[in-house]
Amino acid sequence: MTTVAPTLEAPRAGRWTAFGVVSIALLVATQAFAFVSSPPDENMGQLEKILYVHVPAAWVMFVCFAIVLVYSLLFLWKGREEDDLVAAAAAEAGAVFNGLTLILGMIWGKPAWGVWWVWDARLTSTLVLFLVFVGYLALRAFVEDPQRRGQWSAAVGILGALNVPIVWMSVTWWRTLHQMPSSMQSMAKIYWLGMFANFGAMLLVMAYFIRRRYEAAAVARAAEHAAQAAALGGLD
């Protein structure tokens, strides 16, 4: 069992903190912009404003799971422990945004459709995706050996990502209560703009989350290595 200590580069003090502050501030700004600039929808009224949190959260969730897929494959290919830690950080962030998407969808569904929840394909498959990645995180919590944890969770992450096309295509494959994706034609420009601005800002927040979770995991691993070395009367 050969595991390499994560070679955590020392981040320059404040560099990522500045990134986090900027991305949070940007999200506040884009939300304020969308909130103020968008006129009420002709059917939805003010409810249209939920668009700017629900849809970006869903898209960011997809990005997170794409990162899990890519870094899990990278880890199995190259065996670098850092890749495993990035995949785990992305899975956790993905689960957070997945949960957020579900909650916001329910808050929107009640006034817009008349129900909190229906068992249609889009809603059900999104909930299932959430449960898949809860399982991923549980697996990591139950396995101590880093090599085993890495390879197992990479396999679970890759297989879990195979469910993403179902969620994405559910509204096209099935006739659902959830509407089809909007397009440039079916949505006024000002709503479209607000949605993309919020998606961009939320993407930065996601990047900050993943970075911080990765850092915490890498430092913890480095501490484990140092403790092992000290116990063996090593070089420390």
């Binding site: 006129p39 059917n43 209560l177 397009s183």
Partner: peptide, 14 residues
Amino acid sequence: NLMVKHSNEYHPPR
């Protein structure tokens, strides 16, 4: 049970 199915159109009122 009565549910509203919204379209994917979002426009400000005319």
